[in-house]
Amino acid sequence: MQANERITYLVENYLNKTISKEEYKELSDWIVQADFQEVETLFEAEIHKQDNWYNDSVAFGGEANVLKEIQNKITQSERKVFAYKRWAYYGAAASILIFTLMLFKPWQKTDLVSSDQVNDKVVSVDDKGDDIDILADAGGHLSFTDGEIVTISKQQKAFIDCDGVRYQFLADGGVRLQPLDTASPHQAKHTFFTNRGDKANIILADGTSVWLSSASSLVYPTTFADDKRMVEVHGEAFFDVSHNPNKPFVVKSNDTEIEVLGTQFNMRAYPEVDFSETTLVSGSVRVRSKNSQRKIVPGQQATVNKKGEVAVVTANLQDVLSWQSDVYRFSNLTIEEILTELGRWYAIEGIDNRSTLQERYTGVLSKGKQLSGILRQLETISTHRFIIQERRIVIMN
């Protein structure tokens, strides 16, 4: 049997739920190595032959073309934030397909579920019936030098003026700074921040665009009058820096500095974590700590630990940037680490880990309205069980 015929045979067995463990592994290995277009074309052809497969096995929607539906969901959600390069869409869709294969193992008689479908016999909720909801995205907030706090989503005006700059409120929920002609050379410092569950965008006076993730803040001058454009980040942010070779852009966080001229990168430095991560999408940046400095190229990630040591590795850009979409991607994490990350988006008030297992997982989860749907998915692929008690998660073996 030729290679193409063999893969077609495996896909048919998968869709018919007759695939063996050995065949399942062979198909999964091929998906990881193959070009996405080849995977998409083959699955489309076979799914069109078996329209009943979609309705019987997958809870993503009502169309027969599962790959295209998955890709559309990723594309639509990510376009709300900013335009990824096209390959990122394909990679995300392919990864969800791989995770779908992880969830659906015919020999275990396990059906696929969406994140909002809950089996109460598996995920236990306390007697009050309190599930844990996803936090509402309220957007960004501004804090001025006089202590005033402005919630952007509640603004009825088109703009407000403060400290020599105009904040223009955009239709997509973002905000843009525009220096006024009356601006003084004095640099006031303002803060743009998000609460848990929020994402928000600000365009600074130089045209640099910054997206803040959940529970993050950006401190910046109202104008960049010095020889460097200096800002400070706590939490996680994605930067699309306006190019200016005469005035480098510098991001500070704790004891780390990132210096760029014009580039796209993601910085993650939450105060409760004892390291920071800088991941470069395009351009080049130099990462400096108190003890070391390294220059990284696109696709690399620099991690700075509490000792000031800098380590550089190849990054998974889709995982790093997934916070901007409606999916959560993770690689080689324990269940507790996964839930800790989800706590930035769901109203989790604590985690009680009673499990002795330290297994690690890689996959993609859609962010449903309630956490129990995600826990149901995690139970499907792991040996853990979960109990929800008064917004706390108990992890059991």
Rank of each mutant, 00 (worst) to 15 (best):
I70M: 15
K154W: 03
L101F: 01
D163Q: 13
H384V: 03
V304G: 02
K73Y: 06
S276C: 03
W211T: 14
V394A: 06
R6W: 08
L67K: 02
F192G: 09
V113K: 14
Q2Y: 00
T194A: 11
I348T: 07
F43E: 07
D172W: 06
R354G: 15
H190L: 12
F265D: 01
R354F: 15
I132V: 14
I258P: 00
L339T: 03
V233G: 00
R176T: 10
V313F: 11
G308E: 01
I381T: 08
L317T: 03
Y346M: 06
V118L: 11
Q377V: 11
G235W: 00
D133R: 14
S366Q: 15
F192C: 14
R79S: 15
V122M: 10
W345N: 10
A171E: 04
T362W: 13
T303P: 01
T256A: 03
L378K: 04
A188M: 10
N316W: 01
Q117P: 01
K105S: 08
W345H: 10
S289W: 00
Q155H: 07
A88I: 04
E38G: 05
S289H: 05
N353F: 07
G91C: 08
S331K: 14
A158S: 15
L321P: 06
S153F: 09
Y9L: 07
I134G: 09
F144Q: 01
A302S: 02
A200F: 07
F193R: 14
K73P: 05
L317S: 04
C162Q: 14
V231M: 04
E26V: 05
A315P: 04
F60W: 11
A225W: 06
I388W: 00
L142F: 09
W53G: 08
S95M: 09
K252V: 04
G61K: 06
D35Y: 01
A158E: 11
L180H: 05
V11D: 07
L27A: 13
V125M: 08
V251E: 01
L142Q: 07
L218R: 12
Y361D: 10
R286M: 14
A158G: 05
K73T: 13
L97S: 05
T8N: 15
